[in-house]
């Protein structure tokens, strides 16, 4: 059986890839994809911990389902906002959307 550490390492690597994507990329679509990557990194860790440490219950699995559902909802709302923003501003680059500046 594969050791737990490998799953944790995978989770961390995926999370930081996602975080880096959020911080660096300008395109909102890419940023949203990066957020999905971060969420799924957490999902992997939840499921792995559940399988290895708390086999007697299903809390980790339940959480991961919640996260998947919420992420889907969030993605749909986010994309709707994105379309509305694009229609108004004709851009999807966050560095152009700086009307809240000082």
């Amino acid at each position: 059986m594969v050791s737990l550490n490998l799953f944790i390492a995978l989770g961390i690597v995926l999370f930081f890839i996602g975080l880096l994507g959020v911080l660096i990329r300008r395109n909102i679509i890419i940023i949203m994809i990066s957020i999905e990557i971060m969420l799924n990194a957490i999902n992997i860790m939840l499921v792995a911990f559940n399988r290895y440490k708390f086999i007697e219950n299903n809390d980790g699995l339940t959480y991961s389902f919640f996260i998947i559902a919420v992420a889907a909802a969030e993605a749909s709302v986010g994309l709707a906002i994105l379309i509305a923003v694009y229609r108004k501003r004709k851009t999807v680059f966050v560095n152009k959307l700086n009307t809240m500046s000082n």
């Binding site: 975080l19 959020v22 911080l23 966050v94 560095n95 959307l97 009307t99 809240m100 500046s101 000082n102």
Partner: peptide, 17 residues
């Protein structure tokens, strides 16, 4: 304080992280 209000989303996210 206003200097922090750049309006750049990723700057906010960076500060948070």
């Amino acid at each position: 304080v206003g200097l922090f209000q750049t309006g750049k989303l990723q700057f906010y996210a960076f500060v948070m992280v």
